[in-house]
């Protein structure tokens, strides 16, 4: 591809991205320095033209950031989001690794079907899946009924509206995100490598830790980040499954935006959340491009 057509294509695609991805974030950044006010839009302009002045005067305020960093509501929201997301990531890894490993070791002809069934939940509405999960964990739901029937507990466990409930909801929502990259990296491991390990005197369990796990590391990192990043900002799970005292930043943002209508503060909180996630996102991006390089 060359010449005018190529330049036109690049320009058009770049314009689209600038409009729907870059511009919105710049506006969030801008509004995070504004102050809330009654009106439409409900915040102060960043630049103001004084009568007769040649240049506009900048009216940036750091008040929102100062508030975020001093108010325990926000700090707690960020911290508990990170904590719950980390717990959920770890649990998803523990559940997803044996599953992905079994998928990758399954006979060749089963694998496409297993893959489709592992991904299918990702495409069905997360709202509906959370709703289904609530149905399972309800006081009078099947999970409690099973435990009661087994005699493990005497009274129904209140799992909903607890942190454990939220973590379980996050795991249930994001498990496919973990299984997929794990499967992809496990499946790429040449079976001859495990045979070679066995041939050289290594037992199967040893080979799993010495060969399989190190080679699956890129998939493990990718899977953990793919669960962790969206889980930190998750709204539906904490909103529907959390108690009134559970704080997650996604839910706090939503409340700030819709209920309190403090858009500048919500913008500042978004900017901080993005900054929090920049590190993991960059690592994820590196992993992706490294793998793309290896493939080419």
């Amino acid at each position: 591809m060359s010449g005018a057509g190529r330049r036109l294509l690049i320009a058009a695609a770049a314009a689209w991205l600038a409009f729907v991805v870059l511009a919105p974030f710049l506006i969030v950044l801008k509004i995070s320095f504004a102050e809330v006010m009654q009106g439409r839009p409900p915040f102060t302009p960043l630049f103001a033209w004084a009568e007769g002045a040649l240049l506009p005067s900048l009216r940036a305020s750091l008040a929102n950031y100062a508030l975020l960093l001093s108010d325990s509501l926000y700090l707690d929201s960020y911290l508990s989001s990170l904590r719950l997301a980390a717990l959920a990531t770890l649990s998803a890894l523990v559940i997803g690794l044996p599953m992905a490993h079994a998928m990758a070791r399954a006979p060749q002809r089963w694998r496409p079907a297993l893959l489709v069934f592992a991904v299918l939940p990702f495409w069905s509405s997360s709202l509906i899946r959370v709703y289904a999960w609530i149905g399972i964990l309800n006081d009078d739901g099947p999970f409690n009924a099973l435990l009661l029937w087994l005699g493990v507990i005497a009274r129904p466990l209140a799992i909903l509206n607890t942190d454990i409930g939220i973590v379980s909801g996050l795991v249930y929502s994001y498990l496919p995100f973990m299984v997929l990259p794990l499967y992809a990296s496990l499946e790429r491991i040449d079976p001859a490598l495990l045979e070679a390990a066995s041939d050289l005197g290594c037992r199967p369990a040893g080979a799993f830790f010495k060969i399989t796990l190190p080679l699956a590391l890129p998939g493990i990192i990718a899977g953990c980040l793919l669960v962790f990043i969206p889980a930190v900002g998750e709204f539906v799970v904490p909103d529907l499954m959390g108690g009134s005292d559970t704080l997650m930043i996604g839910k706090t943002l939503w409340t700030e935006f819709f209920n309190n209508r403090d858009w500048p503060l919500a913008s500042a909180a978004s900017v901080l959340l993005i900054l929090l996630l920049v590190g993991p996102i960059v690592v994820l991006e590196r992993q992706g491009s490294k793998r793309a390089e290896e493939r080419s």
């Binding site: 770049a14 900002g233 978004s270 959340l273």
Partner: peptide, 30 residues
Amino acid sequence: GRSAFAGLVYVPLVMPEVIIGISLLLLFVQ
């Protein structure tokens, strides 16, 4: 700017939905 371009392409895949929602709403308001 190719790498910036590639970055922007994939940003929506990893951004929390709440942030995508807020930023687009503010764009429309603006």
